[in-house]
Design a protein around this nucleic acid. Structure first.
Lengths: 146, 146
DNA sequence: ATGGATGCAAACTGTTTGCACTACT
DNA sequence: AGTAGTGCAAACAGTTTGCATCCAT
């Protein structure tokens, strides 16, 4: 099992490489933000991230938060979900098994992973002659009371 | 094969029954809106619906559009999707096989239906002891060039 | 030094809300 | 008659944008 600090080290390296490749600047904000994100478990939104960083006396602007989230989503270090209407939620995505979500009535979020989704993907690719790069699957439900 | 006009007749009846059951009023706006929606094929958003009705000289307000869409989604005559960030898309849903969506790079939307999603649903219900009421599955991809 | 990235605030967009008025029951 | 539902405009929330400044290159 990999230690926590080795994950973030690895992630910073990936970010590094991507910034170089794209000719983007290695600003301290970008590293601070990825650090912060990888210290979380599970989901957060832009406002949450912003507020937590401000509370730690790290000076960032909303603009930078949004810019950086876009960047990180593009290079696949962070993934974006829209669980409820009109609010983007994010979560770290490197080194974590890809998974889908169950959204319960009480806003609880469960995660699962089912290999059959890959089979559906394959069928779809063949049927429509398309190349699928990503998917999102949500189930909506309620906890069964016993 | 059912004719177009019999679908809308059926749909109006369902709306009728639901309004009665819930003690809601049968306002002309509600019928005008469901009529309009069922004259479309595929997806639209609230603004589109509003503008089309205005253009036909039917006086509705945005508030009523949104209220009625909520109502229709609740009674399952219309379904809501969020394809891109922060914009709800709707489509009629009565008498049409439930299906999922493939969103292509060029904003084209394909539809498909795969029974294996039900199997995944069953597994999830059992695994987490939850009751799944709905799901949404999107694939994101590109057309293969040959 | 140069222009990409930032901070800040204002602008934008889709949606919701408050309130006076209308009309279904 | 009573009140749910409507139209309108203002408010709202999340996100984007414009611009002056800053700092990584």
């Amino acid at each position: 099992m990999e230690s926590k600090s080795s994950v973030i080290k690895e992630v910073r390296k990936i970010l590094d490489k991507n910034l170089e490749l794209r000719g983007l600047r290695k600003t301290p904000e970008r590293y601070a933000i990825i650090n912060e994100i990888y210290s979380y478990n599970h989901h957060f939104d832009a406002d949450e991230l912003y507020n937590r960083m401000i509370k730690k006396n790290y000076r960032v602007s909303k603009a930078t938060i949004y810019n950086t989230l876009d960047l990180l989503v593009n290079i696949d270090l962070v993934s974006r979900h829209i669980f409820k209407d009109n609010l983007a939620k994010y979560e770290k995505s490197f080194g974590f098994k890809q998974h889908d979500h169950i959204i319960l009535d009480n806003d609880e979020i469960l995660e699962f992973c089912d290999p059959r989704i890959q089979l559906i993907k394959n069928s779809v690719e063949e049927m429509f002659d398309v190349e699928i790069k990503d998917h999102s699957l949500y189930f909506f439900g309620t906890k069964k009371k016993k």
